[in-house]
Write a protein that binds this DNA or RNA. Structure first.
Lengths: 150, 150, 150, 150
DNA sequence: TTTT
DNA sequence: TTTT
């Protein structure tokens, strides 16, 4: 009915641009968002929140965002579920972003050696989308054209 | 760094008040939040979003919220993880609410037989908290005093 | 850069649908939003927040919203200024809404005599837009096609 | 009932710390928030949104924020009104912030000569609060202990 | 495992 | 100028 989230945090990795079978661009990344308090041991923890963007915004994110960059994200919470390769139902919560702000552009970044070497904007790595975008090990596709938000 | 979500939806079940070992009140419930578009088959789907409240707010929620009630929730997204009884790491995403608004009070509710029979406010069911609050089958506790947000 | 507000409150009056000279629909209304605390005299005050909607949303709001109705509004804060008939610069702050939720539809409304008499949806009153939509007395137009947000 | 705004923008001036007669700290500043579109002449405009903070947050803001700094603000919209020296009722809309994030700390700031000269954190200027904090010309006080949000 |  |  109403579903709005706004987050500010830092990318845990470079984002990765993929394409659905019908050719729609999708970019996923994770934002580390510091908690507003410290835990029992006096350490500040973070929530690691998955973000998905589609189409033109996906391409802009892939082009301009990099690991560690401070970023603001606005979107809606989505809870998808799919059956994994062991036949178990897995629930994935993610933010479907419709507004992303790059709070650190390349030239405000201090020790990003990669940017200095390469120049910005950089072409993102493009992989065929045959992986669970939120994990590192091989799993069957779990994002398809059915997941398109519009 | 910044982490705020606002949701309006309906409770999928009555909320349930529990207590941590040290006696702190926790109430959890799920909000069905309709998506702003229809899927490929022309049906409107919903996201089922888990909500946690603590302390006094937990008790108010347990007292006044009921299955089906339209409710607004404001809070931060939290991603917890714990090891389940099969030794697998399970990720739970939920909203830690600090503001909950009851958009339908008992007397604006039309066909809530339970309310008519019982009168409002109603004492919530109180169970010892020895269950995963997001499931119906027996699992070891996965909320403890360590999860307290402050 | 980022600008998002979410409000829940009640309409202080029926909304009014108007049209810019070029024929674009605009609806404005004010939301009374209760403050989360009481003042020095123990009374709860409210903030009276102006809302503007454009185009199709303007027409839906004019059709379905009525004085007193509980309503959720999402949009961006806008600060316009114009010169009034005395040559003074007047600042107007309002929410340009892109998402409005009717939390009380006509049939959940208890004592809205107007709705019972007339049936819902009702055709809104349509006035030529030759008035300051936030006041009741005659002033020159201060919303024009230049104010169109897109 | 619910009232939440989140803004990202840049300070139009250094903030100014003041004190109410009873000694409570208040800091006010204005955020320039770029609009998400360009106007008829292809220029990007901004909304200038007034922010108020109280107590400890007021002191932190006065200590760390400076003109031009990119800043995220979270709070509630408040509409105050007071009678000005000509006997007219003036409406002031502002965000009462409860969360402010400094997105550019002193050392990520490139051409802030003031910071380089002075070193950060800097003691803010402290003026007795006998001015309308949102204007430059002399007017009677319009913030008092009655405006305290809690 | 889901609400109207 | 304000709503329940």
């Amino acid at each position: 009915m109403m579903n709005r989230s706004i987050l500010i945090g830092r990318l845990t990795k470079d984002p990765e641009l993929r394409y659905t079978p019908s050719g729609v661009a999708v970019t996923q990344f994770t934002l580390a968002v510091d908690r507003p308090f410290t835990n029992g041991q006096g350490q500040r923890e973070a929530d690691f929140i998955n973000i998905v963007t589609w189409r033109k915004l996906a391409e802009t994110c892939a082009n301009y965002l990099r690991k560690g960059r401070l970023t603001a994200v606005e979107g809606r919470i989505q809870v998808r579920n799919y059956e994994n390769n062991e036949g178990r139902r897995v629930y994935v919560t993610e933010i479907v972003a419709d507004n992303v702000r790059f709070l650190e552009s390349a030239n405000t970044q201090r020790d990003d050696q990669h940017n200095q070497d390469i120049g910005m904007p950089v072409e993102p790595s493009r992989k065929p989308m045959n992986q669970d975008p939120f994990s590192d090990d091989s799993k069957p596709i779990d994002i398809s054209d059915d997941d398109l938000p519009f």
